[in-house]
Nucleic acid binder design. Structure first.
Length: 422
RNA sequence: GGCAGGUUGCCCGAGUGGCCAAAGGGAGCAGACUGUAAAUCUGCCGGCUCAGCCUACGUUGGUUCGAACCCAACACCUGCCA
């Protein structure tokens, strides 16, 4: 049996680690308690966090015990990022986000059995700590000269960094020490952008308690052009279905580039090496069938949402992108598509609305000006038929089953409206 | 606290009284070509009741026929000095 570390490495999930041989020996020697943290910087975890959750799942499946930390205290400070000082969120907001994130992460690990997962909040030990204790027991282990040398800090010296953000690393390090003491936690992992914070924790445990603990970093996933994978035109891909619909989520993965899709499949899918290698072959021989993209989108949507949501997303996509005339589809199919992609309700009192209004209301364009522009460019569609006249008004013949209209801009942006006759 | 510089559209950045909805670049969008891929070429890229009008160049007020551009106060940012 291959070790879990080899499995993670093959899947491209290891960007960096502390002494690899020592870590491998440690993992092979028996169940290891490990931790990964999520800071509440938004009301939902996002696509980038998914990689950590998947690594946690792999480790738990291999018999190790997960601690999922939600950063109730670190979220109130904010880790330094290159783009500049963060705005502090109120304590109430952070507390609210902690709850939301806690309810999301539980989906990805098991709370059953010998190695059941534990969810903790670092505010529990950071909150009550007196500042003098903090400075004496934690601060004493952090040489400022070393802290200043860290990339994240050095990049900020020009434009400035507050003491608050400068201190972030101490809090995260303290988490590792606390979890080591409370639970015997000996492995922390996180995104490679967290590597500095993670290794600082390893060092603190060594200095404070003389123990050797370990660390892993997952890579930052990029697109073929080198930019971050996980953003779309409309922003971050969230895991909360209310923030990013399962349909949009499915589409996001379906549009993965050929040159990257196998890499993503290794990371996000549970498929075996043989299956993935087969999909890689198919992508090379028959790229237009996009078998790997479909497998990726289906797998991730089922994992994050549900199999039912995955099936609904597939059905909606095949209706919108398929060759079938939308007007030929039965009402039940249209109704399902409309609910999957999300529809606005429009009241038609005396007359039906104009196409510009429908395009704007259904959300495929941000403004009426943009709707006119899209029509002029030939990129606006109603029920898969190109719109040519910006002043056109809907007629009864444009309504599917008397009330539905499917709008589209370009190839990929779809919306829908339901007309309510009064 | 003192001195100097800065604040322009999603981002970077030009513009120092009318020709400015504001150069250029990036990002983004659409069309063509495709496979809901990449690359390439072309067009678009504040809003609207769209051949016209409205809103915008940190905020507020002023000068002027006319201000992103001049003046004043304020706010915030950066650097140097204390």
């Amino acid at each position: 049996m291959t070790s879990v570390l080899d499995e993670l490495t093959w899947r491209g999930l290891v960007a960096n680690s502390t002494d690899e041989d020592a870590l491998r020996a440690h993992l092979d020697a028996g169940p290891v308690t490990f931790y990964v943290g999520f800071d509440p910087t938004a009301p939902s975890i996002h696509f980038g966090n998914l990689v950590q959750l998947i690594v946690a799942r792999h480790l738990q499946d291999a018999g190790h015990k997960p601690i999922i930390l939600v950063g109730g205290s670190t979220g109130m400070i904010g880790d330094p990022k290159d783009s500049g000082e963060r705005t502090l969120n109120s304590k109430e907001t952070v507390a609210e986000w902690v709850d939301k994130i806690r309810s999301q992460v539980v989906r990805y690990v098991s709370f059953e059995g010998d190695n059941a997962a534990v969810v903790v909040n670092n505010l529990d030990w950071t909150g009550p700590m007196p500042v003098l204790d903090f400075l004496r027991t934690i601060g004493k282990h952090f040489p400022v000269n070393r802290m200043l040398a860290r990339d994240v800090v050095r990049n900020r010296l020009e434009e400035g960094i507050s003491y608050t953000e400068f201190s972030y690393v101490l809090l995260q390090s303290m988490d590792y020490l606390e979890l080591f003491r409370r639970y015997g936690c000996t492995l922390q992992f996180g995104g490679s952008d967290q590597w500095g914070n993670i290794t600082a924790g390893v060092e603190l445990v060594r200095r404070a308690d003389g123990a050797r603990v370990h660390a892993l970093a997952t890579p930052l996933l990029t697109k073929a052009d080198g930019t971050k994978f996980g953003k779309t035109e409309s922003g971050t891909v969230w895991l909360d279905p209310l923030m990013t619909s399962p349909y949009a989520f499915h589409q996001f993965f379906l549009n993965a580039e050929d040159s990257k899709v196998i890499e993503y499949l290794k990371v996000f899918s549970r498929r075996s090496r043989a299956e993935i290698e087969d999909l890689a072959r198919q992508t090379e021989l028959d790229p237009h069938r996009r078998a790997a993209q479909k497998a990726l989108a289906d797998d991730v949507t089922a994992l994050v949402h549900s199999e039912a949501e995955r099936d609904a997303a597939i059905a909606a996509a095949s209706a919108v992108f398929g060759r079938a005339e939308l007007s030929d589809l039965p009402e039940s199919t249209i109704a399902q598509v409309v609910s999957e992609i999300g529809a606005v309700e429009l009241a038609a009192d005396t007359s039906l609305p104009g196409v510009v209004d429908v395009l704007e209301a259904s959300g495929v364009v941000p403004s009426r000006s943009a709707a006119r522009r899209a029509i002029a460019e030939g990129g606006a569609y109603l029920n898969n038929l190109r719109v040519t006249d910006p002043d056109a008004v809907l007629s009864e013949a444009d309504l599917l089953h008397g009330r539905y209209v499917i709008t589209r801009r370009g190839k990929k942006t779809v919306g829908a409206a339901v007309i309510r006759h009064s």
